[in-house]
Computed example of a mutant assay.
Amino acid sequence: MGFFLETLFGGLMTGMLYSLVALGFVLIFKASGVFNFAQGAMVLFAALAMARFSEWVPAWTGLQSRFLANAIAFALALLLMVAVAWLIERLVLGKLVNQEGITLLMSTLGISYFLDGFGQTLFGSDIYKIDVGMPKEPLFLFESMFQGGVLVNQEDLVAAGVAAALVASLALFFQYTGTGRALRAVADDHQAAQSIGIPLKRIWVIVWSVAGFVALVAGVIWGSKLGVQFSLSVLALKALPLVILGGLTSVPGAIVGGLILGAGEKIAEVFLGPKLGGGIEIWFAYVLALVFLLIRPQGLFGEKIIDRV
C-alpha cells in the first residue's frame, strides 16, 4: 500500500506540472478563441530567458545575493515575454482579426517554430540550470503507518502550491474583473466585442502577456526540476490531451485534468508496464484524450455547445 501511495502521489505531482503548461492553453483559448500551439515553445523560451539572465545578472551587476539576482532575472524574463506578446499581436494576430480558426491555429504553429529557433539563437542550445532555491531533499511521510514511509519530493509540493495559487488567481480574474469579462466577450465573438467598444488589440496583448507569465512560471519550475533543454517544448505537448480532459475553457479543469493524467499514466506505467512491455507513459495521455473525445468532447468542465436550427 505504501508503494502504491508513493506512485500515486508522484503521479499527482507530475500532473500538477503538466497543469502549469495547460493553463497557458486554456487562458488563450478562453480569452481569444485561439488554440495556441506555441505554448510549449513559450515555456521553453521563458525558461531559457530565466536561466541565462540568472547567469548574466550577477556578471552585469556584481550582485552576490542569489535571491536578488534571481528576482531581477525573473523580472527581465517577464518583460521579455510581455515584449514577445506585444510583437505577436502587432505582427501576427492583429493582421488576422476575424479570420478562420484554422488560419489562427496555423499562425500559432509558425510562432512556435520561430520561438524555438530564435530562443536557440538568442540564448544558446546547451542544457542550462535554474536554481531558485527550491528544496530538493525528499520527505518521508507516514513512516508510522508504512515501513519506510512514503517518499515525497518537496520540489513537487512547491509546484503544486504555485499551480493552485495561479488557478485561484486566474479564476477570480476572469470572473470578477472588467478585463476578464472583456476577454470572455472577445472569445465569444470578435466582431461583436469590437462593436461595443472593446479594444481587441489591447485585450490580445493582455492575454498573451498573462500566458507568457504562466509560461515563465512553468518554465522556471520545469527547468529547476529537469534542467532547461529543448526537449521541454516537446514535453509541454503533454498538456494538449490534458486540456481535452479538463475542457478547453476551464481554468480549474486544467488542474483536475492534470491530476487525472499524471496519476493515471504513472500508475499504468508502474503496475501495467512490466506486463505490457513498458512505454505506456508515451501514449497513455493521448489514448485517454481520445476516449474523452468520443464520450464527452467538451471535457469534464468544458461548456456544452448547443446549435439551434
Score class of each variant (00 low, 15 high):
residue 1 M to P: 02
residue 3 F to G: 15
residue 8 L to F: 12
residue 9 F to D: 00
residue 9 F to N: 00
residue 10 G to F: 13
residue 10 G to S: 13
residue 11 G to Y: 08
residue 11 G to T: 10
residue 15 G to Q: 03
residue 16 M to R: 14
residue 18 Y to M: 12
residue 19 S to Q: 07
residue 22 A to G: 13
residue 26 V to C: 14
residue 27 L to M: 06
residue 29 F to K: 05
residue 30 K to E: 01
residue 31 A to E: 08
residue 36 N to I: 09
residue 37 F to A: 06
residue 41 A to Q: 09
residue 43 V to M: 07
residue 47 A to N: 03
residue 52 R to T: 11
residue 53 F to M: 05
residue 54 S to F: 10
residue 55 E to R: 02
residue 56 W to P: 00
residue 58 P to T: 12
residue 58 P to G: 14
residue 61 T to I: 10
residue 62 G to S: 08
residue 65 S to E: 04
residue 66 R to K: 14
residue 68 L to E: 11
residue 70 N to V: 04
residue 71 A to M: 08
residue 72 I to L: 11
residue 73 A to I: 05
residue 77 A to T: 05
residue 77 A to D: 04
residue 78 L to K: 01
residue 79 L to M: 06
residue 79 L to N: 04
residue 80 L to M: 10
residue 80 L to F: 07
residue 81 M to C: 07
residue 81 M to R: 01
residue 88 I to T: 03
residue 89 E to K: 07
residue 92 V to E: 04
residue 94 G to W: 10
residue 98 N to P: 01
residue 100 E to N: 11
residue 100 E to C: 00
residue 104 L to Y: 12
residue 106 M to G: 02
residue 107 S to V: 15
residue 112 S to W: 13
residue 118 F to T: 06
residue 119 G to L: 05
residue 125 S to C: 00
residue 126 D to T: 11
residue 127 I to Q: 09
residue 128 Y to E: 10
residue 129 K to C: 04
residue 134 M to D: 09
residue 134 M to R: 00
residue 139 L to M: 13
residue 140 F to G: 06
residue 142 F to I: 10
residue 142 F to W: 14
residue 144 S to G: 11
residue 145 M to S: 08
residue 145 M to V: 13
residue 145 M to Y: 10
residue 146 F to H: 10
residue 146 F to M: 05
residue 146 F to Y: 11
residue 147 Q to Y: 03
residue 155 E to C: 00
residue 159 A to D: 05
residue 165 A to Y: 15
residue 168 A to N: 02
residue 169 S to I: 15
residue 171 A to L: 15
residue 173 F to R: 11
residue 180 G to T: 04
residue 180 G to Y: 06
residue 182 A to K: 11
residue 183 L to H: 06
residue 183 L to W: 02
residue 184 R to V: 15
residue 188 D to Y: 15
residue 191 Q to S: 13
residue 192 A to P: 11
residue 196 I to V: 15
residue 198 I to E: 06
residue 202 R to N: 14
residue 202 R to K: 14
residue 204 W to H: 02
residue 207 V to S: 10
residue 217 V to P: 03
residue 219 G to W: 02
residue 220 V to E: 05
residue 224 S to G: 05
residue 224 S to W: 08
residue 230 F to Q: 13
residue 234 V to A: 14
residue 240 L to D: 08
residue 242 L to A: 02
residue 242 L to E: 12
residue 242 L to I: 08
residue 243 V to K: 09
residue 243 V to E: 08
residue 245 L to W: 03
residue 246 G to W: 10
residue 250 S to N: 00
residue 254 A to D: 02
residue 257 G to P: 05
residue 258 G to N: 01
residue 261 L to Y: 00
residue 262 G to I: 07
residue 264 G to T: 13
residue 266 K to F: 15
residue 270 V to Y: 01
residue 270 V to F: 05
residue 270 V to D: 10
residue 271 F to G: 03
residue 277 G to E: 07
residue 285 A to T: 06
residue 286 Y to N: 03
residue 289 A to T: 13
residue 289 A to I: 09
residue 290 L to F: 14
residue 290 L to M: 13
residue 293 L to P: 13
residue 294 L to Q: 07
residue 295 I to C: 10
residue 295 I to R: 03
residue 295 I to L: 15
residue 298 Q to T: 12
residue 298 Q to L: 11
residue 299 G to S: 09
residue 300 L to V: 02
residue 301 F to N: 00
residue 307 D to F: 14
